[in-house]
C-alpha cells in the first residue's frame, strides 16, 4: 500500500533566550530523531505523555513548523520546501476550543475557510450543508460561535477540518473535552473517513479510543520512538493497551 507520510530521523529543537544583559540560550529537543511511515487509508496513532513531542511532530507534518533535522514527507512532498503542493490536500484539527472565529457563525466560518481552500463557489454551499449535518450543527449554523458550548466549538473545528475533503486529516487530541456523544460522533466520522480511503493521523490520551480505531501506532517519549506496531502487537501479554503503555513509559523513565 502507498506510503503517504514518511518521517525519517526528524528532529525539532526550540531555542529560547532569557535575561536582559547576559542572554542565556536554552535549547529544548522536542523531537529527537523519530522515524515512522503511514500508509494510505490507515488510521495511525501517535501516543505519548504530555511534552513527548506529538504536537510538534504533527506541526512539522502539517507544514506549520520546519524540522531542525531529518525529513518529513507528506504525499511524496517535503513539508519544508514543497508545502504548497501538500496544503490543499491535507487538513488538521487541534483539540480544545481554538481554531474558529468566535464572532462568526458556524456557516460563516465554513464559508470563509472554503474560500481560503479555494473551493469553487458552486460547490461551497453544498459541501457546507453536508458537513454541518455530519457534525450535527445544522440547527445552530447561523448562531455566533461564541454562543456555542465547548463540544459544539470542537465539532465546528472538525467541520472546518473536513472542508477541503482532505486526503490526510491530522488530529491532535480531537476528543479532549468532548462529551461522550460528541466523542462517539467523532469516532464515527473517523471510521467513515477510513471507509472513504482517507488517512487519519491521530494523537490522543484515550487508549481505548486507540484500540478501537487505530490500525497501527507509535509511542513516543521525550522526542524518541519507544514502541511501534498494531495495538495488538503493543499490548503483547497485557490485558489492555493502557497496561502495556504504562509499563513502556515506566520502563524508559526508570
Amino acid at each position: 500500500m502507498e506510503t503517504v507520510i514518511e518521517v525519517r530521523d526528524a528532529r525539532r529543537e526550540y531555542v529560547s533566550r532569557s535575561g536582559v544583559w547576559k542572554r542565556e540560550k536554552r535549547v529544548v529537543k522536542a523531537v529527537d530523531g523519530i522515524s515512522f511511515e503511514v500508509r494510505r487509508g490507515e488510521i495511525f496513532g501517535l501516543l505519548g505523555q504530555n511534552g513527548a513531542g506529538k504536537t510538534t511532530t504533527i506541526k512539522m507534518l502539517t507544514t506549520l513548523l520546519a524540522p531542525t533535522g531529518g525529513s518529513c514527507r507528506v504525499l511524496g512532498c517535503d513539508t519544508f520546501g514543497e508545502e504548497k503542493r501538500i496544503r490543499p490536500r491535507i487538513n488538521f484539527i487541534f483539540g480544545g476550543e481554538m481554531g474558529v472565529y468566535r464572532r462568526l457563525s458556524a456557516r460563516d466560518n465554513l464559508r470563509y475557510f472554503s474560500n481560503l481552500y479555494l473551493l469553487p463557489r458552486g460547490e461551497q454551499e453544498k459541501r457546507i450543508e453536508r458537513i454541518l449535518g455530519l457534525v450535527d450543527l445544522a440547527e445552530r449554523a447561523d448562531d455566533l460561535a461564541e454562543t456555542y458550548s465547548k463540544g459544539m466549538i470542537q465539532r465546528l473545528q472538525i467541520a472546518r477540518g473536513l472542508i477541503n475533503d482532505p486526503e490526510i486529516l491530522f488530529m491532535d487530541e480531537p476528543t479532549v473535552g468532548l462529551d461522550p456523544v460528541g466523542a462517539r460522533m467523532l469516532r464515527d466520522i473517523i471510521r467513515r473517513l477510513k471507509e472513504e480511503g482517507r488517512t487519519v493521523l491521530l494523537t490522543t490520551h484515550n487508549l481505548a479510543e486507540v484500540e478501537e480505531l487505530c490500525d497501527r501506532l507509535v509511542i513516543i517519549n521525550k522526542g524518541k520512538v519507544i514502541a511501534r506496531g498494531t495495538p495488538e502487537e503493543i499490548k503483547g501479554g497485557f490485558d489492555t493497551l493502557e497496561d502495556a503503555y504504562v509499563k513502556l513509559i515506566e520502563g524508559v523513565s526508570a
Binding site: T62, T63, L64, E83, K84, R87, P88, F94, G96, M98, G99, V100, Y101, R102, F113, N115, L116, Y117, L118, R160, N164
Partner: peptide
C-alpha cells in the same frame, strides 16, 4: 491567540 493564525497561514490561499 485564537489559534487561527496557523490555519490561515497554511491554507492554500
Amino acid at each position: 491567540y485564537s489559534g487561527t493564525l496557523a490555519l490561515i497561514f497554511v491554507a492554500p490561499a
